[in-house]
Amino acid sequence: MQENVNVSTGAERAAPPQPPAQPTLTPAAKKRRAVKWLTGFLFALPVLLGIVIFNFYPAIQALVSSFMHDDKFEWFYNYETMFSFDPDTFKVFGNTVFYALVSVPFGLVLGYFLALAANFKIKGISVYRMLLYLPVIIPGVASGLVFTYMFGSLAHNGAFNHILNAMGLGEWSFFEAENSSMATLIFMGVWSAGGSMIIWLSAFKNIPSVLYEAAKLDGANALQCLTHITIPMSTPLIFYNLVTGFIAALQCTTPLVVVGGRFDHMGGGAGDSLYFISVKILNEFNYGLYEYASALAFVLFAVVGLFTLVLFKTSRWVYYGEDKE
C-alpha cells in the first residue's frame, strides 16, 4: 500500500488542480484516484474508529439504557422517577445551573482585571504572569486538599478563619454550612482566574494598536477605550470562553475534592448545597443504578445543549471583523 501511495501521490501532486468533470477516466487514473482517497481515509481512520467506539456507540448505548429499568424497556420510567420521585433532582439541577450562571461570568470579569495587571509594560512581567497562572496547573486533588484545609473551621486550624479572626471578623462557616458553601465554591474560582487571564492577554495582543492611537487622538479616555475597542474586538474570545466555560461548569465535579464524603451525599456538601449533576451521576453509578445514571446524564446533555444553543442564538454581539458582517 505504501508503494502505491508513493507512486500515485507523486504524480498527482505535480499536476495542478484538475477541472472537476472528466468524461472518461483511464483505468490508471481511476486507480490513482482510489488510492488518493484511500490514503486520506486511512490517515483519518484512527479517529473515525475512535469516535465510533468511544463516543457514538457509548452515547447511543447510554440513551437506550436510559429507557430501561432492570434490563427491560420501560420507556420513561427513569425520567419519571427523576422528576416526580427523586427528592434531589431539582436541587441538583438548580445548583448546577446556578453555579454555571454565576461562576462563568465571575471568572471572565476577574480574568479581565488580572489580564490588565499582567499587561503592565514593566520589567519581569512574564514572571508575574507565570505566578498568576501557576494555580491553574496545580492538579485538582492537590488544590482540593489545600482549600479543604484553608476553608476549615478555627478548630481545624483553617487559614482563612485565622486571618479573619485576627482581623476581628469572627469565624466563618465556609463549606461547613448550607448557606455559605456555594459562595465559597464560587470564591475559590479566584484562584483559577489565571486561565481566562491568558485568553484575555492573547485578545489584547491581537488588537491593533492603531485603534488605540486613533482613539487617543480623538480624546477618548481609558474607559471609552475599554468599552469601544477592547471589548468589541475581544468578543470572539469572550464568546469562546463563555461556551467552553458553561460546558465545563455544568459538568463541574470540584465538590468531590473540597467536601468529599463529609456530608449526606458524597460530594454533596452541607445540606446538599453543592450537589451537582455529574457528582450525582457518579453516586448513582456507585449504587449500581446504571440506567438511572444514564438518564441523568442525558438530561445533563440536554442542559448543556440548551446553554450552547442559547449562546449561539444570541451571538449577534460577537464581532468577527468587517468581512463577515
Binding site: A44, V47, L48, I51, F54, N55, F56, Y57, P58, A59, Q61, A62, S65, I247, L250, Q251, I277, S278, I281, L282, F285, Y290, A293, S294, A297, F298, L300, F301, V304, G305, T308
Partner: peptide
C-alpha cells in the same frame, strides 16, 4: 468526517462514561 469529529466535543464526558465502564 471532520464535522463528526468536532461534534463529539458536545457530548459531555459523563454520558459515555458508564457504557465505557461496562
Amino acid at each position: 468526517c471532520f464535522a463528526m469529529v468536532l461534534s463529539t466535543l458536545m457530548i459531555p464526558g459523563v454520558v459515555t462514561q458508564i457504557p465505557l465502564y461496562l
